[in-house]
């Protein structure tokens, strides 16, 4: 009897070996087990909020779990390096943003966007020109006219010296030909709070962090720095329309470790493409202030090249030193 139990036990234990062997031989079915989705930023952060619904769409689409893992630290450096160093068997994907590109100006160790395979871009996060609703600046022209007459008087709240909103602020300043007083805060939230309290005049902080206050009537959106107008604010002009050649903001997209099978990348890319057409998902992202823009890997590569050029211009021509936020 004892022997029988032992044999049964051995068989039960050995079964998964055969099972997984069988799976490997039927290599056509991808993905056939858990896919890890590494987010190099915290739970509830910008990237996290948009990645989770996309991941759960992929989960339904492929019928296997897409397990979201947050690996924050070093402003995204830690998680991005983990994506680079993960196995390229198609069972690890991750997210990327402009921070991954700007990290080399910031951190002594940094990831390289050319060390991963791009899958697709899912959103852009446009920078804005936003003022308090009580501000005397009703239009961008008002703001520019005042700033030109009083150089250095307009205070612009950003998310820390060299951090994203500061970069937008300096870029805006240089493209609009004005001089402002940059006031660094610990992050987006603190900077928006200062704007709400009327302690500063304006900010270039991206839409998701100001949209709730614009909708409530506490803040006023003077212009948006995306290529096209935002679906939720069709009346707000883009900077480009107003004659300022500044398209700036962040983006977020998916990547896979270098050398991942192109067929697998294509499969994920197609599913993300479908996800981005899902009306419920689109509504969720737009309501959160993001601008859903599905771009395939080739188009995504162009976006990244542009971002690299813009950062290069900021560092070499405007002499900014970056930090990450």
């Amino acid at each position: 009897m004892k022997k029988l139990v032992l044999v049964a036990l051995v068989l039960v234990l050995a079964l998964p070996v055969f099972a997984s062997g069988a799976q490997e031989s039927a290599a056509e079915a991808y993905p056939s087990r858990n896919v890890r989705v590494i987010i190099p930023w915290t739970v509830g952060g910008m990237t996290d909020v948009l990645t989770r619904p996309v991941a759960s769409y992929l989960e339904k689409h492929f019928g296997v779990p897409f397990v979201v893992e947050n690996k924050p630290g070093g402003s995204g450096v830690v998680g991005s390096l983990e994506i680079e160093n993960s196995k390229n068997d198609g069972y690890v994907i991750g997210t990327t943003s402009m921070s991954t590109v700007s990290a080399k100006y910031v951190s002594p160790v940094y990831p390289d966007i050319h060390n991963v395979e791009l899958i697709s871009q899912v959103i852009t996060i446009p920078a804005t020109v936003t003022v308090n609703a009580d501000s005397k600046f009703k239009t961008l022209d008002d703001l520019l006219a005042y700033a030109k007459a009083n150089p250095g008087k307009v205070t612009n709240a950003n998310s820390g010296a060299g951090a994203s909103a500061h970069i937008y602020g300096v870029y805006f300043e240089s493209m609009a030909g004005i001089k402002v007083n940059h006031i660094p805060y610990a992050g987006y939230v603190e900077a928006v709070t200062a704007l709400l309290g009327g302690h500063v005049d304006m900010t270039n902080i991206p839409l998701p962090d100001v949209s709730a206050h614009i909708d409530s009537g506490d803040l006023r959106l003077l212009a948006i720095a995306s290529a096209e107008r935002h679906p939720s604010y069709p009346d707000v002009p883009t900077l480009r329309e107003l004659g300022i050649e500044a398209v700036m903001g962040n983006y977020s997209g998916f990547v896979a470790p270098k050398g991942t099978d192109p067929e697998k990348v294509r499969a994920i890319d197609e599913a993300i493409g479908l996800a981005m057409q899902d009306p419920a998902l689109r509504k969720f992202l737009i309501d959160a202030g993001y601008q859903p823009v599905y771009l395939n890997r080739t188009q995504f590569a162009e976006v990244i090249t542009d971002a690299e050029k813009q950062l290069d211009f900021l560092v070499n021509d405007l002499g900014i030193s970056f930090v990450d936020d």
Binding site: G44, P53, A212, H213, S216
Partner: peptide
């Protein structure tokens, strides 16, 4: 509360004046 707020946003609710 910063983490909690992330939880609200993921639920599709927008914390804020509205």
């Amino acid at each position: 509360t910063a983490v909690l707020m992330g939880g609200l946003i993921i639920q599709g609710l927008r914390p804020g004046p509205l």
